[in-house]
Amino acid sequence: MTVLLSLKQVPNIPIEADSITPTAFAGKTLAQIGKLVVMQGRNSCELREFFEITGESADSVEETEIVIRGDLRKVKQIGKGMNGGRIRIEGDVGMHLGAEMIAGRITVTGSVDAYAGAEMSGGNIQIEGNAGDYLCAGYRGSPDGMKGGRVFIAGNVGNEMALHMRKGFIAVKGNVGAMAATRMKGGSIIVCGELGPRACIEATKGMLFALGKVSSLPPTFKYSGSSEREFTGYYIRYLKSRRPDFLQSDISPSEKWAKFIGDFAEAESKMEIYTRLVLNSHLAS
């Protein structure tokens, strides 16, 4: 059952709406939902001050779907710590979307600001627009970033995506900014567009598939051969089964992939970057 939130007007000062989660909504009437707390600056406000609330609420988290409409760029922390259910956002949305998410599904038709999916440990996020900096990253000082879950971005992504990533899967259809997968130590990333500079700096473990162009890699990564790879097809087929629109053209399982391994600045150097040789022969030497 769906609860529909329509933003009445764009707030002049950003609001923190971490109370917008299926867990907080489940088992409440629309009136009770309207009284959930959101913060605007130092003021504690009610959800209904900012949103028109309609639809039908559900008893359980699993049955709860929240649809949010409006220019939500000044609304932060939607779906923070979410543990089940669904959130669908029709428009652009502010920082910390789905941060520390445990389970459930978030879809966004527009773009998201920084720290979307930060430190998430499960669930599924689908963003049709762009994502800002620190997508699926760890917060400052945290040694652990994303610990699980699946994230699909149909647009471009900013800098330091997947900082400290430990586990999980990220696929990006567009381009990715600088220093992606810094200090990564597990998990898998597929970048269909161009991979920005300094990818995987200080990464010790994990896998990144660059389906598009890679202009440069850190000097502390070493070339480790070009060949067809037994498992690239596994990941490509998985992506294709979930988001066929992410792949511009078919990639044959017999295509050759240049492998780079690093970061040799670190004691452990098991980060693997696979790039399509046909687009990146300049890297392989």
């Binding site: 300094r198 700096i201 200080e202 850190p218 000097p219 502390t220 970061d263 040799f264 600045a265 670190e266």
Partner: peptide, 9 residues
Amino acid sequence: LEVIETLRA
């Protein structure tokens, strides 16, 4: 950054 990481390696 590249120079520092190279020195580290």
